[in-house]
Design a protein around this nucleic acid. Sequence first.
DNA 1: ACCGCCGGGTGCC
DNA 2: ACCGCCGGGTGCC
Length: 983
Amino acid sequence: MSCRKLRDGARGCSQYNIYREEGNCSHFSSSDFSTSLELEGFSVSDTSGTEEDTDSAVLYGTLRGSVVGLRYYTGIVNNNEMVALQREPNNPYDKNAVKVNNVNGDQVGHIKKELAAALAGIMDNKLALIEGVVPYGAKNAFTMPVQMSFWGREENKEAVLDQLKRHGFKLAPPLKGSECDFASKWISGRAGPSYSAPVHAAVQLTPEQLKSEFDKLFEDLKEDDKTCELEGAEAVATLLLPHQKQALAWMVSRENSNDLPPFWEERSNFYYNTLTNFAEKKRPKNVLGGILADDMGLGKTLTTIALILTNFQDGKPLPVQKIPSDKFYEESGTNSMNSVGRRLCKDSNNMMDPGVSNIKKLETAPLKYSSCLPKSDAAKKPRYSGSSDLGKSEDLLLQQTKTTSFVIQDPGFASVLLPPSTSLKRRTKRKGTTSIQSVEKKYSGDDPRTTLIVCPVSVLSNWIDQFEQHIHQDFHVNIYIYYGSDRSRDPSFLSEQDIVLTTYNILATDYGMKGDSPLHKVTWLRIVLDEGHTIRNPNAQQTKAALNLDGHRRWVITGTPIQNSVKDLWSLISFLKLKPFTDREWWHRTIQRPVTMGAPGGLGRLQSLIRSITLRRTKTSKIKGKPVLDLPARKVLIQYVTLTEEERQIYQSVKKEGKAAISRFFSEGTVLAHYADILGVLLRLRQLCCHPRLCINTSSSSFTADSKTPEELHEILVSKMKLVLSSGSDEECAVCLESLTLPVITRCAHVFCRPCIFEVIRSEQRNAKCPLCRSELRAEHLVECPLEGEIDSSNEKKSDQEWISSSKINALMHALIELRRDEPTAKCLVVSQFTTFLSLIENPLKESGFTFTRLDGSMAQKKRVEAIQCFQSSQAGSPTVMLLSLKAGGVGLNLTAASRVFLMDPAWNPAAEDQCFDRCHRLGQQHNVVITKFIVKDSVEENMLKIQNKKRELAAGAFATNKPSASEIKQTKIKEIKALIDL
DNA sequence: ACCGCCGGGTGCC
DNA sequence: ACCGCCGGGTGCC
């Protein structure tokens, strides 16, 4: 315990943390954690500059000084050990005091006062980072020398030298190896003495070389000892593929590992850190976890579920009860003891996330839910016991009698809340013997059982789907979805679950409410951050919230471990609690700077760090010479369509009108203010390419927002937001640069994520301006998106009109009929962004006698499941066509029965198309996949293709390049608009 | 001797 | 600290 305290103290000790956490208020004690929380408001705006500083830092020079007062402190150091210098402005004897701490954060002594007087100003004004190494004399009783390196931006160099001079100090030039602590060790470690260490960036590697080294960083990590395989426990309903068994074996071995963490060695009764030269008696804890960085589609979620079920303790499976299915039917519903698993909610139409709402349906009818998976299906699933004696420890079974149960509460619904069961009993294995004991409400006590999974909202429903798919229905696994305003606030209830699933937003929101985060009161068996790269910003609330969760097994699941640079890795490493990297100073000194400066060995270190905690396979990775995923070929064809004379006329007239309006916006310089209107024009043109009826009645929203009543203004903003969201442009939030979550629209008609824009308002206070157009920004002016399930700008109810075809529909029907003639059993997806268009296509399908099904975002889960199962079925008479809306379903959606895809209209974002194609071109696909994109000649669609290609190129080269700024995004958008409408 | 010198007490910031 | 510094004791050779 005290060690934890010390460590937290250490976090506050480094200069980096002073900058970050204390900002302008350095009179606060840095080790007081709640204090730093209160200061977050300051730190957000304060940090961005600092971080860039550390990136562009050069070495000014070095200086030898002395550390005094050793005998008053417990912190000890070794020769050549790194030390941290920390200002101590509240020292009662000297306001210039500078503390010296060892790597562990224990104070070693103080900088001698004359020198401290010179350093104080430099440190307080952040003119330089000062790093120390004790070259020798570490065992002295009273004082010891310290070799200091001064790092800072070029423009501050003079000021620093000046300040030192005024106190009678002069920096030695940064010459010999000893000054550059990282360089010296690595050079001298290789071949004798070194004569000049690299001082300026990129001496060894050009930025381009660095980038490609990053690319390689995660490759080829599997060929060493990561090829063992392990079968999943009995409760895993799905047969794991070889690479998934490897991942499982690796994860289990990580969790049960007794190894020292990377860069630690045992040396004569001490544990020695080879990077910092820090040593301690206490064995440093290894991460019982790591980073699972497999590419999309390799089954990270399944592997994680398998891990949860397979490795409860020491390789024993999660003790869940297996129940005969007939017994299950008898007992469910009557056994109130297990009612924790049966929180029933009334209805589900109001949910924010369609996927979640659907699950709740299942909630209300658990029996029906379990029948969602046909019995026959379950029977088909192979059962296999876990490796060796795993999986058959009957004595560990729970006294519970339910299948997988979900507990869901959601905003806006009065749930039937049953008091959490306290009489729940379970058998717990202790010291080799089994005993029945009452579960104490200790928020897990010393015997945690619960895995916490944190994921973005967007994949919440995917997790639920995957639980459903991969947890054998004969096993009772308690799963609680910690989401929605009705979520249980009872930590002891949470700690009784097997799995608690929540989102980053919930995690951060809870954490923000000081002292009242149930998630932070539980000691978890295991914490899994899905899409873990979302915590790469160390200052974000969700990152801090994740870092402060309690639990030893810690996993990061991500397909993109490094997005821009090494910097992104720190949050992940810090979350994993790898000593000494939890403190940013040590990460920076030992890894980040050596790597970004191209110091010899820097990359080597990073690589061995990554290698020891990461597993990554790409779709092209190979196992024993065979690709991990052996997918059939995929071909994309573009089928051009020519509009009829009549269609062309309508198209041209709408285009002419829209072009005139947009030209006017350009000449007025109001393009961005009318962004939604422009999207509207483009949307109508895209609809006209599909079918003239799609855009009838699409009200041309008024182009001026002045002189309106508040109600009118509200209406207009809502409709503009809907337009943006439904236009298929896949708008990104200009703040986080990712897909919109909880979209809100500003008075100036720009759409952002709600949390993002609130963060802007919070940090800029009164002067907040729209990030896109710099208009006044007020929280009370923001308009939220009304929750109405599927947003669809095109108007439905036109079924009374007489049906007419269109050029595109003709082209589709021609292709479908041809396909039916050549391959009668082939199944295909007909994909469009416009559900109305899908409805129009239903007519000719019926006329031509096609059996088809349909899947779009507005359908209830039950119907979706039906549609999917129906389509996937291989029975004679099953549908051969599925009408699919482009964005329906999550990444988990599996439509492998289809071998043909007809994309009726191009998507704004090529990634959305690719994702859609992946729903059939994925694991389990037996045939080559042919995709046909219908594109209208000489139309906005053709221009969209060009933009798509550009975006693809951009994405391919985007690995190490920096994020575009808001203004760059603006520029890109303007260019896109011009290209789309031929301006 | 308003000095020098001696030797004990003492010691971060 | 086997140092420096402080301040009290002391005082020719």
